[in-house]
Design a protein around this nucleic acid. Structure first.
Length: 156
DNA sequence: GCCAACGTTGGC
DNA sequence: GCCAACGTTGGC
């Protein structure tokens, strides 16, 4: 069992959007970064824990808990010429990009990034490292427990 | 809108 | 294979 933080722009898909979806599951399509792809392709397993993070918005931060809900499979948008995620270099028999499905587990209070940064114990979280731009980052079990127990269920 | 940081591209 | 230029991310 591993843990992850996954960024989503709430204007594209907020945690509330995820909650209102049928079966509360969404395909995490559109990842076009090799490092992030490799996490999905090589390291994620159904049931892994996910901190659902809102990025590029007025209130960036953790918005809910989710889980990995499928093994990796080819990202359909790479083959769709009308999609902004279309990749002409990717072939059907050797797809370049994959995604997993993600399912909402429960909504949390919004834990702002500034609050995460204020906790010394979280200083080496990958997502908080200077210059980090990865849309998917691993979360250690220690950080996962700390965030859930101290910031989410602990109320601050 | 600014800008730091990083990934990708392409000429050589 | 080097590396400068460029594009993107994303908090502020």
């Amino acid at each position: 069992m591993k843990y992850w933080l996954m960024k989503s722009e709430p204007e594209e898909c907020s945690f509330d959007d995820l909650l209102t979806m049928k079966r509360k599951t969404v395909a995490w399509f559109g990842v076009r970064n090799y490092q992030a792809r490799n996490f999905m392709r090589d390291d994620m397993r159904p049931g892994d824990g996910v901190l659902f993070y809102h990025s590029s918005c007025a209130e960036p931060g953790i918005a809910g808990i989710a889980e990995v809900a499928s093994p990796p499979y080819p990202d359909a948008t790479q083959f769709d010429p009308k999609s902004p995620y279309f990749d002409a270099g990717s072939k059907r028999d050797t797809p370049r990009w994959v995604n997993v499905d993600v399912r909402a587990v429960r909504k949390t209070r919004l834990v702002p990034i500034a609050e995460l940064r204020a906790h010394e114990k979280l200083a080496d979280m990958v997502v908080l490292r200077k210059g980090n731009r990865l849309s998917i980052t691993p979360v250690s079990a220690k950080h996962w427990r700390y965030v859930l127990e101290r910031l989410i269920d602990g109320g601050g």
